[in-house]
Design a protein around this nucleic acid. Structure first.
Lengths: 262, 262
DNA sequence: TTCCTTCAATCTGTCTGACAGCCTGACTGC
DNA sequence: GCAGTCAGGCTGTCAGACAGATTGAAGGAA
């Protein structure tokens, strides 16, 4: 991203050599005060055992304790805020919004909003869902399989009661992610999904998207609980096919709001 | 992430209903001044045609033009900085680091640095690489296939010359991403890879990782250019198997630096 | 007693002004 | 032509101030 790709012509070896040599250099970031503040905050959070939702000390307190100006504290918190690690409420305080353990770091993804973004994010989701489903089917513990089944039954109960089943569906899929023994899959999928929702602002789980696929979740649940990876992958693909049909229908009707996401 | 998952017990339907109802609500962001500034900046960048690497107007100028305090400008730019959209150089200015087109947005990922993070990011990469390889084999245009082959030949030329082939390998894989007709795949993979590199600071492309797989790239290139998706997927899996072996070897020798990434 | 109103303390969002250190381009002397 | 020097511009950081939002507690009404 920050590096220019050399031309494909095999002729000039000099510039390629120079580029390769430069490949050994990493931009040494000038330690700025904000970073020190964030490190200190991460330590504080770990040592104080703060959990998601807890309130951080006020900016004034932090500034005094760390012996820096409030502006510096604010800029540091701004970084975390834009990474989704904290949320700030005017007049109230800063609240932990994610698990900030020292030794966790963050990669921002940039997605361009174009006409087919919905399909694109769905494609990425499919690749990840297939992998995570296979993982879960192969590696889930008995407790995790029981959890998946419990979530599935809860989902069906909610659905048959006629209530909105967004949260229940979310919980079901998340149980699968958790069973995959690789939390990164779940994180990436959830973030991609959140991008999906930001593009198409209508809440997932209404009749618009996914309703047709709900009847198929039972087979997926069974396959995972049986440890049958191939059948599970087959089922998740069928489910995603249904969702993709819905997405294409939405694209065809041109419901996609042209406005940029805020 | 900001929502509590209801307990799996199927007993209480009330809380689940409340959560489902809440699923229809989106957090309405209290328009804060920073956001307005960022919107204005995005417009400015679009209208002025600023490209990656260009310098933004100074904070003072921006503050005066937008009639806000410099603090506000700084906090807004801090957001973009932490999202990797701009880089700031002390005493020099702020520089565009990514394509900030109005209508692009950003999803931050959190990765915990643990012993097996390398394997986890590699697993995610595998899921995405398989998908993107299949896409590329099926949908690449003739020009794109030619580009892939050119990059491959360049890669081999660089390799046989004994120089470092990091950039060339990067370019080869990127040509595949570009041929997939879904730029999102490439973006996600590159970001995951950059996380990989931040964990294991040694540059990819030295003898440590990937050298064994280089000989296998030819078959991958052929399969994609032939449009044989299944063979291409098979080949990329073999390549990733080799890389995974290297990763496991690194983990076994405990080379992973214990320090947190800065 | 219980509920509602009011209020004061607290906190964030924003602006102003200031200063040190870094960067850059132009100038100067050789 | 070239290298060193310097002034101006820019960012990083701090201190102080004020408006608006929030919150919890005190106090009054039913």
């Amino acid at each position: 991203m920050e590096k220019q790709i050399p031309p494909a012509s095999t002729g000039s070896g000099r510039s390629a050599q120079a580029d390769d040599a430069a490949g050994h250099l990493r931009p040494l970031e000038s330690r700025t005060r904000d970073m020190d503040v964030l490190d200190a905050l991460a330590d504080m959070i770990a040592k104080a055992g703060l959990k998601v939702g807890d309130r951080l000390p006020s900016e004034l307190v932090l500034a005094q304790r760390l012996a820096v100006g409030r502006s510096t504290i604010r800029e540091a918190l701004k970084s975390w805020q834009s990474l989704g690690l904290v949320t700030k409420r005017t007049g109230s305080g800063s609240y932990l919004a994610a698990d900030v353990s020292p030794g966790s770091f963050h990669i921002p993804l940039t997605i361009k909003l174009e006409g087919e973004s919905l399909l694109r994010t769905h494609q990425v989701r499919r690749a990840l869902e297939v992998a995570v489903t296979r993982e879960a089917a192969c590696n889930a513990t008995d407790a995790q399989r029981a959890e998946i089944r419990a979530r599935y039954e809860h989902l069906m109960a909610v659905f048959h009661s006629g209530e909105h089943w967004y949260a229940a569906d979310h919980a079901f899929h998340r149980a699968i992610y958790d069973a995959s023994s690789n939390p990164l899959f779940g994180e990436v999928i959830q973030q991609v999904q959140s991008a999906f929702h930001r593009i198409y602002t209508e809440p997932f789980g209404t009749t618009a998207i996914g309703a047709a696929s709900l009847a198929l979740h039972g087979a997926l649940c069974d396959a995972i609980c049986d440890g049958d990876a191939e059948r599970a992958v087959e089922q998740i693909n069928i489910i995603l096919d249904e969702t993709e049909k819905d997405v294409r229908r939405i694209l065809a009707t041109g419901v996609l709001d042209a406005g940029r996401p805020k």
